[in-house]
């Protein structure tokens, strides 16, 4: 039974990370749920931001109240709700592959787990970063226009609430993606991430004794909503030696890096 092995006329070339990125981008844009989730996020941030600006503009007539860039903090409310969208999208990017069994097809087409995860992470990060940065900038500009003042916000503040927030949200999404890769279950991963966002507050209510006061404050200060808030306000809220300025970004980057490392190891070791 000697047969000449088949050779394909399609030119063979080694696939690389660029191919995987193109593939992940196709996957991302071909799903309606991506569009919906990001659409809801944009509407939430922009809509709530502008509504809030109107409401405040009606309430207080004096534009002087927004000195020191505090006008920019009005975007925080919408962005807090947007975290839910980003978390959902990040988790679903990976868990929907596990849920449908698509992951097996993907890994058959590209046996290098690392490349698949890297491509997913890059595409997702870029998408969220660009979307969030743009929508933050638009929202902030719209709010300033509604209130008729920029409140003298410095360039540094502007960069922090646009690029800074964009990066923070992208890393938060990446963290969700890593958690999704570790848990492989959509509902479980989303619940875990939402829990991660809200749990510090629930715990803080439970720790209602004076001795644990510091722990409680720390829990709240290092919670994700508070870190996001710090990026908007710029300073520690409670006047304690807590994260300020760009520090929230370094914190979430560290956490995400650890989770991603775990995801890489898990994807490589476990049976698909």
């Amino acid at each position: 039974m000697t047969t000449t092995p088949y050779t394909s006329p399609i030119p063979v070339r080694r696939a690389h990370l660029g191919d995987a990125i193109a593939s992940e981008w196709t996957k991302m844009r071909s799903l309606r749920s991506t569009l919906w989730t990001l659409g809801v996020m944009v509407v939430l941030v922009l809509g709530l931001g502008v509504l809030l600006a109107y409401a405040i503009g009606e309430a207080s007539a004096s534009p002087d109240a927004y000195e020191g860039g505090s006008v920019l903090t009005l975007g925080l409310l919408g962005m807090l709700l947007a975290t839910v969208c980003v978390i959902t999208l990040g988790v679903l990017t990976i868990t929907s592959e596990f849920g449908t069994g698509m992951i097996r097809t993907t890994l058959t087409a590209c046996p290098s787990r690392g490349r698949v995860l890297t491509a997913k992470a890059i595409v997702f990060f870029a998408l969220v970063f660009v979307t969030t940065t743009l929508v933050s900038a638009f929202t902030a500009a719209a709010q300033c226009a509604v209130l008729g003042t920029t409140g003298g916000a410095s360039a540094g503040q502007w960069i922090r609430v646009t690029v800074g927030v964009g990066l923070f949200m992208a890393f938060l999404g990446l963290l969700s993606l890593a958690v999704g890769a570790l848990l492989r279950h959509s509902a479980g991963s989303i619940t875990t991430m939402i829990g991660l966002v809200l749990l510090p507050y629930v715990l803080a209510i439970g720790l209602y004794t004076r001795e644990l006061n510091d722990l409680r404050t720390a829990l709240v200060e290092y919670s994700i909503p508070a870190l996001l808030g710090t990026l908007y306000t710029g300073g520690p809220v409670g006047g304690m030696p807590m994260p300020s300025g760009w520090q929230p970004l370094w914190i979430i980057m560290g956490v995400t890096a650890v989770a991603l490392a775990g995801a890489y190891t898990a994807l490589d070791r476990r049976d698909a």
Partner: peptide
């Protein structure tokens, strides 16, 4: 392996395109 192992929200073409790109086809 399993014909149902596709994401139902994607079109047949997008599904194959993603796989082709992944493999540099």
């Amino acid at each position: 392996l399993d014909a149902r192992a596709v994401h139902g929200g994607r079109t047949a073409r997008s599904h194959l395109l993603a796989l082709a790109q992944l493999a540099g086809i």
